[in-house]
Write a protein that binds this DNA or RNA. Structure first.
Lengths: 144, 144
DNA sequence: TATAAACCCGACTAAAATAGTCAAGTATCT
DNA sequence: AGATACTTGACTATTTTAGTCGGGTTTATA
């Protein structure tokens, strides 16, 4: 059970963006350098973030990206969904009338995995980008 | 972020085993048939479960596996650990004095992933095999 | 108006992980 | 003796991941 780089990078990049989100857009090149993430990969990620209206792009020289909503309103779950980082605990489709593995009944542990999914998504639902930025600046202060 | 089959199968198989865990050992063949899991794969999984002393094996005809502890005492976290289904949210080693990605400081989101890991492991810590067996038999009754 | 910075986008690919399979055992019951 | 069932290591196809690459388009500015 592991978090993929895509999801991690998306969050890292957005925290970075949120911190420098003044009037000027932030270029992916800067984020790439600061966070040590491949520029090409970042572009793929931001394409998705833009399509889900989490960020806005500014083209041309001096261009870059800006947040499209307030940091408070951007939850982790939105970010993960945007980059297709879903929490998947079961193979079987929830919608299907049939049970798991094509059997007539739900597998013995179906409810468990549903619970787990909810448990994790609940965490993602509560955390906002603002929380992360705050947490980070507080830590910086307290660490000297 | 997804749960692998190995972890899922391990839990499914153990719930199955716990339900039929009377005096007689349960053969992997039976579990394989009931749960629709490849016998060869089950053998791999039970090898690990046995090494971690979650189950005990009985060789020969009429052999199989039995639980090595009370269902109440077997937590999900033990099962997952046994089959190497770890929760991994960060690439960076926790032990290293250095920060993430070889940088001098922790990445902006390091604490977040730690929190997430704890959140998930907390769930696994609380659930026991007994809980799952109970939950299942209750559901069967209420569903008719 | 040329140039460079930066976003836009699809296609490709190497490496790793996953989810098994296969083969050749050993132990035990009947 | 034969069947059942655990034991173990090696192998492999498939899928996913984590990118790379190449060619665009847009826009500020010198």
């Amino acid at each position: 059970m592991k978090l993929t780089s895509k999801g991690r990078y998306a969050v890292m990049a957005l925290v970075d963006l949120a911190r420098f989100n003044n009037i000027n857009p932030v270029s992916l090149r800067d984020i790439s350098l600061r966070q040590g993430i491949s520029l090409d990969y970042l572009e793929q990620i931001f394409l998705k973030l833009r399509k889900k209206e989490i960020v806005q792009s500014v083209r041309g020289t001096q261009g870059g990206y800006i947040l499209n909503k307030k940091a408070k309103e951007i939850k982790l779950i939105n970010i993960f969904e945007a980059v297709d980082e879903k929490v998947k605990t079961v193979q079987c489709k929830k919608e299907s009338k049939k049970g798991c593995n094509g059997k007539a009944v739900k597998c013995l542990t179906h409810n468990l995995w549903d619970e787990l999914e909810n448990h994790i998504n609940n965490f993602f639902d509560k955390k906002s980008l603002e929380d992360l930025v705050k947490d980070n600046s507080e830590r910086r202060v307290s660490n000297g």
